[in-house]
Design a protein around this nucleic acid. Structure first.
Length: 432
RNA sequence: UCCUCGGUAGCUCAAUUGGCAGAGCGCGCGGCUGUUAACCGUGAUGUUCUAGGUUCGAGUCCUAGCCGAGGAGCCA
């Protein structure tokens, strides 16, 4: 029996008989000649079956194959300019593992509703392969960057006793008779971990039960959140621009075939290098006044069209800092020079992708936090441990959160985050 | 939660003023030694989202509901 090889390694086996184990993506019957498009999870390759070169039962077996039938083929790989990918397999033998029923996803067009209902099968398509390979590489780039820059991975809990920020709706579960909630952020625990380890990050799924129905929202999404002691707003923006640039440059370098497969124009990604422009919220409001939103009032939050307009003024991601204190989370540190604004910043991605990072400097002032907790009507007893951090060695510190799905959507230039994760969880969709 | 649009064959869609339910793809059968979403011939395929209503007659009009898409708000 020939050695089993994967399609991604086929170039190093030219001229030697090998076995491929996979599925039939497509078949073209030319009479005495059949083309089989085979996939095995690592790639796609064309196999060619000539009637005169194989046993009659082998040729008949090839004719019986339906789309997505599983099979093992043996043959000899060769360079072939006419084949997609430059290589093809000259088939010598073929074994059917299973004949697939009528496969619902054809090589023609399909609508979103149909594809989402068949997400478990849609994942077999080349475009979904490219996107999810890019996602996996982005996740690795995220881990590599923090691991190589002195941050320690310290996991934060997913089941939590109360809201982190008290602003968004949480998914409730029954925790042995008491309510527990799926975490919407690891941030508060990160602050405790930063006081213990200096520089930390957490990385995992987070959950928001909001009834958001847009191309930028999932109810379950992945977020990486670094936090470090003695960090300031300016430190955060410097780390953020280095980190995001590393992700973009790594994908450009290591996932070029996938970017090409999804027809991503990479010229705009090449610009993503430090330093990023940094403007204040007040500057951003001025931009809005000059570009189609003359009515925008200082103190309002930005909506999607506002973020798009601001980001369109720049050719790389842009930090918007010093938002009005009123509209940000209770733990944000006020700017000592102007307490109306706080030391927080969001990073807006180019090309209309909106906010991919939110973060800033946290307040180290116990009295201020106690007032803020009261003002936001948060249950004080749930935050006692958090307030302890301001009693036992409080230091200035900062951190941020980066949304993985929005980052993947931007890097891939997708029009919806639902394709950036294998099984998206959205309003009114939890199947499959 | 609000606004807008949609639901017809397995899929993507068409169906004139309310008047016989259609096409392409896919699938079956036949043909073809270089196909790239092949091509040529041929055949089968329907609870028109659901429940009521108007009408001689409803895919089409009315009422209610269900499901989906796009956007808003909120956020990463």
């Amino acid at each position: 029996m020939a050695d089993h090889v994967y399609i991604q390694d086929i170039a190093s086996h030219v001229g030697k008989e090998v076995a491929l184990k996979g599925w039939l993506a497509d078949r073209t019957d030319k009479g005495k000649l059949q083309f089989l498009k085979i996939r095995d999870g690592t790639g796609f390759i064309q196999a060619v079956v000539f009637q005169k070169d194989v046993a009659p039962e082998t040729f008949d077996a090839a004719r019986k194959l339906t789309q997505e039938s599983s099979l093992v083929v043996t043959g000899i790989p060769r360079a072939e300019a006419r084949a997609p990918g430059g290589f093809e397999l000259a088939v010598k033998d073929l074994r059917i593992v299973q004949i697939a029923d009528d496969y619902p996803i054809t090589p023609k067009e399909h609508g979103v509703e149909f594809l989402m209902a068949n997400r478990h099968l849609w994942l077999r398509s080349p475009r979904q392969h490219a996107i999810l390979r890019i996602r996996a590489r982005i996740v690795k780039a995220i881990r590599d960057w923090f691991d190589d820059n002195g941050f320690l991975l310290v996991d934060t809990p997913i089941l939590t006793p109360s809201a982190c920020e008290g602003t968004t709706t949480l998914f409730a579960t029954d925790y042995f008779g008491v309510p527990a909630y799926l975490a919407q952020s690891g941030q508060l625990y990160n602050e405790a971990n930063a006081a213990a380890f200096g520089k930390v990050y957490c990385f995992g799924p987070t959950f928001r039960a909001e009834k958001s129905k847009t191309r930028r929202h999932l109810t379950e999404f992945w977020m990486v959140e670094p936090e470090w002691a003695y960090g300031t707003l300016d430190d955060y923006m410097r780390v953020g621009e280095e980190f995001v640039s590393y992700i973009a440059q790594t994908i450009l370098k290591e996932r070029a075939p996938e970017l090409k497969a999804i027809e991503r124009d990479v010229s705009k990604l090449r610009n993503v290098a430090p330093p990023f422009p940094k403007i204040s919220y007040t500057d951003a409001v001025e931009i809005l006044h000059q570009h189609g939103f003359p009515e925008f009032q200082w103190g309002e939050d930005f909506g999607a069209p506002h973020e798009t307009t601001i980001s369109e003024q720049f050719d790389k991601p842009v930090f918007v800092h010093r938002y009005p204190t009123e509209m940000k989370a209770f733990y944000m540190a006020p700017d000592p020079n102007d307490p109306k604004v706080c030391l927080g910043a969001d990073l807006l991605a180019p090309e209309g992708y909106g906010e991919i990072i939110g973060g800033g400097e946290r307040s180290a002032d116990l009295a201020h936090l106690e007032r803020q907790i009261a003002k936001h009507n948060l249950p004080r007893e749930a935050y006692e441990w958090y307030l302890d951090l301001r009693k036992y060695g409080a230091v200035p510190h900062c951190g941020f959160g980066l949304g993985v799905e929005r980052t993947v959507a931007w890097i891939c230039k997708l029009d919806h985050v639902r394709e950036t994760v294998p099984y998206p969880r959205m309003l009114e969709r939890i199947y499959p």
